[in-house]
């Protein structure tokens, strides 16, 4: 269901919001928040309806329209045509929608798109540049680590987070880090092999 865009957004403009977001970023960098306490009474807000926002996705600033209730997953798939992340359970239980937000693997279905403003979002699409594919993706193919392939984008993104964090993970660590991703075809063994091959530096 889409709602009509409000002609004038009450008490909010995108410029004002972006200013606010950059202040928040400074605060998180450790600068004292004391001066923020004297801010005017009305906090910034997004009214009901669509808003044009900017998200940083795969290193690029992308402009898109989202509602306050749009999840990051829906924004990626329906607004930006980045359909690699899959909508399977839509409740954070399957991992099909896994993307990285500020370097952490997360369920994009359980996150509002507007909560991603100011963050770096990385999706499965970033692992393929033309004919060039990331070694992890290549190893998923080499190990035949999929049957229906629906869980694969999420599996790859969780595997990538595991490799980025641990370098050379043990089998137990791979299992731990992938425990939020479900493969109904049961190709787990080959997925673990693909992650381990990548850690060992295999590219073919």
């Amino acid at each position: 269901m889409s709602l009509p865009d409000e002609p004038e957004r009450r008490g909010f403009s995108r410029r004002a919001f972006i200013k606010g977001a950059s202040v928040a970023a400074v605060t998180s960098a450790g600068v004292a928040a004391a001066n923020l306490a004297q801010a005017p009474q009305e906090p910034k807000s997004f009214a009901i309806g669509e808003h044009e926002v900017e998200l940083k996705i795969n290193g690029q600033q992308r402009k898109l329209k989202v509602e306050t209730r749009t999840t990051l997953l829906d924004a990626l798939r329906d607004r930006l045509d980045l359909t690699g992340a899959k909508k399977i359970c839509d409740r954070g239980a399957c991992g099909g929608c896994t993307v990285h937000v500020d370097g952490h693997a997360v369920n994009s279905c359980m996150m509002l798109a507007i909560d991603a403003i100011g963050s770096e979002v990385t999706t499965i699409e970033s692992l393929t540049q033309g004919e060039q594919v990331h070694p992890l993706v290549q190893n998923f193919a080499t190990c035949d680590a999929m049957q229906c392939g629906f869980c694969t984008p999420g599996m790859v993104m969780s595997s990538l987070a595991c490799l980025q964090r641990r370098g050379k993970p043990t089998r137990e660590q791979v299992q731990h880090d992938l425990s939020g991703n479900i493969c109904r075809c049961g190709t787990y063994g080959r997925i673990f092999e693909a992650v381990e091959r990548t850690a060992e530096g295999a590219t073919k």
Partner: peptide, 17 residues
């Protein structure tokens, strides 16, 4: 989800209000 207004407080007192 039903539509909602999304509020971004800049301080704890603002959030509490």
């Amino acid at each position: 989800m039903k539509p909602f207004t999304y509020i971004l407080p800049r301080s704890l007192p603002e959030a509490a209000t």
